[in-house]
């Protein structure tokens, strides 16, 4: 699926994505929307060293029990406004992981098999571009 990170890493994104955006009656879950199928569109422009480190971490996380991932996401959220040490890593993770998840969710490109209300439609977002 991805040419830049492993299938396990993609699975890690999907599991974390489902915690960040679980979906409800109006909005699809992260996994249901399937924007992660286009994750390479983002990663191909990121620094190569960042992709390597993040891919490894996501692969490890893909094997963790859900309660560990929920704890991690909560810690990431709590890291802002905190001190240094481990908090720095958690803040970096928060911005990196949420950046990927939200960029592949609030986007026009969903998964190949998705049929439903896309997230941008779910929040009723549209803009008009008047080109030359």
């Amino acid at each position: 699926m991805s040419k830049l990170i492993s299938n396990a890493a993609v699975r890690g994104i999907v599991r974390l994505g489902n915690i960040i955006v679980p979906g409800d009656g109006d909005m699809p879950s992260y996994e249901e929307y399937g924007g992660y199928e286009h994750v390479d569109d983002l990663l191909e422009h990121a620094p190569k060293s960042d992709i390597g480190d993040l891919g490894l971490l996501l692969s490890v996380l893909s094997f963790m029990p859900k309660f560990v991932l929920v704890w991690l996401v909560n810690m990431m959220g709590a890291s802002h406004g905190k001190g240094n040490g481990l908090w720095i890593l958690l803040r970096q993770l928060d911005m990196g992981i949420r950046g990927i998840v939200l960029s592949t969710y609030y986007t026009e490109k969903g998964g190949a098999s998705f049929s439903g209300t896309a997230p941008l439609d779910g929040i009723d977002y549209s803009i008009t571009r008047m080109e030359d």
Binding site: I88, R91, M95, S103, K109
Partner: peptide, 28 residues
Amino acid sequence: KDTFPRTEAAYSSQLFWGGGLEFDDKAK
């Protein structure tokens, strides 16, 4: 003008250093 990426996801990753964002050493 005719080649700028048109979606937020595309331009955020293609038009900025760090693939979108950069951070200070404390990630604050």
